[in-house]
Every structure is written in C-alpha cells, then in structure tokens.
Design a protein around this nucleic acid. Sequence first.
DNA 1: TGTGCTGTGTGACTTTATCACTGAACGGTT
DNA 2: AACCGTTCAGTGATAAAGTCACACAGCACA
Lengths: 207, 207
Amino acid sequence: MFHHSILDTLPESLRRDALSNVKTVRIEQGRILFRAGDPCQGLPLVLNGTVKVQMTGVSGNSIVLYRMGSDDICTLSIGCLMTGHGYRAEAVVEEDAEAAMVPRGLFDRLMDQSASFRLGIMESYGRRLDDLMLLVEEVAFRRMDERLERWLEVRAGQGAITITHQELAVELGTAREVISRLLKELERRGKLRLSRGRIQFIGAFSG
Amino acid sequence: MFHHSILDTLPESLRRDALSNVKTVRIEQGRILFRAGDPCQGLPLVLNGTVKVQMTGVSGNSIVLYRMGSDDICTLSIGCLMTGHGYRAEAVVEEDAEAAMVPRGLFDRLMDQSASFRLGIMESYGRRLDDLMLLVEEVAFRRMDERLERWLEVRAGQGAITITHQELAVELGTAREVISRLLKELERRGKLRLSRGRIQFIGAFSG
DNA sequence: TGTGCTGTGTGACTTTATCACTGAACGGTT
DNA sequence: AACCGTTCAGTGATAAAGTCACACAGCACA
C-alpha cells in the first residue's frame, strides 16, 4: 500500500484504476531515479525520502535545481512523458525514497476525469516555475558568500553535516575552490569547524 | 475575431463557450501586461506581437526570463490563477500585441472537457520549465562575453538594432558597465559599431 | 608500510561585479 | 543658436568570483 495526497480525493473507480496501474519503486540513497537523456517511463509521485534534481551544463559543471520530498510530484517528468523527449536533468536520491510511477495512460485518465488531480498537477507546476525563477535570480544576482551561509544556516540545526566541498559547489552552482575558500574564511571567523567531508557548526551559527 | 491554435480542435459547444467568454486585449509596445504583485485576471493567450517576461531581484537588478510570441500561452499566469497569489515577474510588451484572456471559469471548463487543451497547457509548461533550466545553466556557468555575442548574433540579421546598454544588461542579467565594456571591445575588434542607443553589425558578425 | 584515490588548501591570474565619476548626445526651451 | 535637464555611454579603481595548476592530507586497502 502507499499514500500520496494527490490521489486522496479520487472517486472510487479512479482510485481502483490508480492502485492497480501504479507501480511503486523503492530507490536507495545515492541511486539515480533518472539521468539526462533517459526517456520518461511515467510520472513519479514521491511517497517519501528526498530526491534532488540537478543538471550538468556543457562546461561540465552541475547545479542543483530543486528537491522533491514526500507528497511531491516530479513535474519535470510530465513534459518528457507528453513529448517523448528525454530528460534534460538528472535526479539523485538523497534519502532512501519510494515513488509511485503513473504510466502515461493512467495519467491521461486522471487528467481527464479528476479536477482535483488536475489542480494538484497545476499547483505543482506553478511551484516548480516559481522555484526556478527564484533560482535564476539567486544565481544571477546574489553573492556567493551570502548564498553559502544561507544554505548552511538551513542545515545548521543538526550541529554538523557530512558533505564535501565539491558537493556543496554543485548545490550552489560554483567551483569547488570558491567553496573551499569561503568555508575557510568562515572557519577563521569561528563560525564552524572543518574536517574531511564534514562541517561542524559552532555556536548558533547565527549572524 | 481572433485565432489561437490551442483553441483549434475544440468541439463546437466549447468553442462557442470560449469565443463568448474570452476578452481580447490589445497592448502597445512598451506597455505592461502585468507587474510583480498584480493579481491574475485570467490566462493570456498571446495572439500576436511579442512580450518579454522579466523579474527584478531584491538587489534591484532585473533579468529577462523568457519571451512569448504568437500562439504562446502565458503559462506563468496559471499558477497565479489557481492559487490567487500575485505575479512574481513582470511582462513588458516589446512589439504591439494582442492577447485573449481566458477567465478562471472558462479555463476550468476547458481543462475539464478538452484533452487537446490540456495537452497544449502541459506542453507549454514543459517548454517553460526547459527554458528556465537552460537559463539557470547559462547564468551559472557561461561567460558573459559568449552570452552577449550569442545574443547579438541571433539579432544580427537586421544589420542594426536599437537598444541601450542598460536594456541589454537586463537581457543578460548583468550590470550596464559590463555590457558597455564588452561592446566596446567588440567594436575595437571591428565586429560592430556603437552609437547612442544603437548597435550596427559589421560584416557577417560571424565568428 | 606503501600505494592510490579522494578531498582540501592555496597562489596566480582572469573575468565579472560594484562604485564613483566624467562627459557625450539628445530633446525641449527660450 | 545657446541653455538646460535628462538619458546614455565610457572608464578607472577595487572587490568578488571563476579558472588553472599544483601540493599535500586523510583514508582505504593491498
């Protein structure tokens, strides 16, 4: 059994249709949900875990575009599902995840017959568009030190995180050296302590 | 009368519904279709002309996110239409444009009753997402001189264009000074000639 | 104990962003 | 034609970020 809120309000017939035509997959941390170029097998409804979506530019550099968690919909897949084009980005599982895969036929029936499903899809699309617009703004105009500190602050609750400078560089779409230097500067200022693959926060890491 | 291809394949009853509930507006060059914060009045179907969508960051800097032309759909509006949130970006008419405004109720009916309308909406969303992902990649990793040259090359057909350095800076999401310097360098290299508000291309502007 | 791989630190240099200011070009007035 | 205000463009100085090259540290494993 599984649960995803976009399927909550379906009438009984559609619900049965959905339950019998959806295949749930379990993917563990570090595995790839899809790669750039892959064809789309169906619309993934994320049941739990977290998945990050990132793309790699011609230069070979990568940047994380957004994350998906419980109850999210992989909106990006819809376009690929409709047009048959391959994915342009890749999705990496960060915490063990399960997803319900909605095949094309079922997707069409749900879109046809359920207003609430349609609403869920539209809202998901809207959020994704918003996310990307904000990301463009951030990448174009914000200073890297601010962006890094903000990223760290969000994760500072745990006291320490396990991440390499290279991974952090991909998060923010910059070069590893830039991250190394900025982190070193933060360490000098006593806001954190660095060790191989690990960042430990000091004090409240606030300000 | 007006024409937009997403309405092409509607059954007769829906077509009448659409024709009687859509209001077409004409907006001239330089006017604003919507501003950041505006509530959404309906889904604009662009009939002709061109409209650029740009956003302004907290820093006050702006960047052009994408353009819409004949037969495009202002997908960004759907999210605002559904959630009631205001626009996050602003839309400026570049060439006199006409748009058919689809109000919420009609939009819902079309989504409910026309598979081809749904398909059109989904495809439009997919393209927009793709555009924004490519933009993120470009802003994050590409050098400004390449981006500028590419932008100019696309428009070099006319022999000359009328645009200020400031406007060009907004196109690419950078500062006016950066554009001025890069253009000056291109002029030194004999690829174009600059004058107030105008850029004249020399030779084939190729290479 | 050595060997290899991954991760980190850093100097040197280029590109881009920001700040501050100058002057040129244009439109409208007298 | 001379004046004035506004917009547009050019440029030096400096800071931030990206790129290249390389040294070395930490860790796994033979």
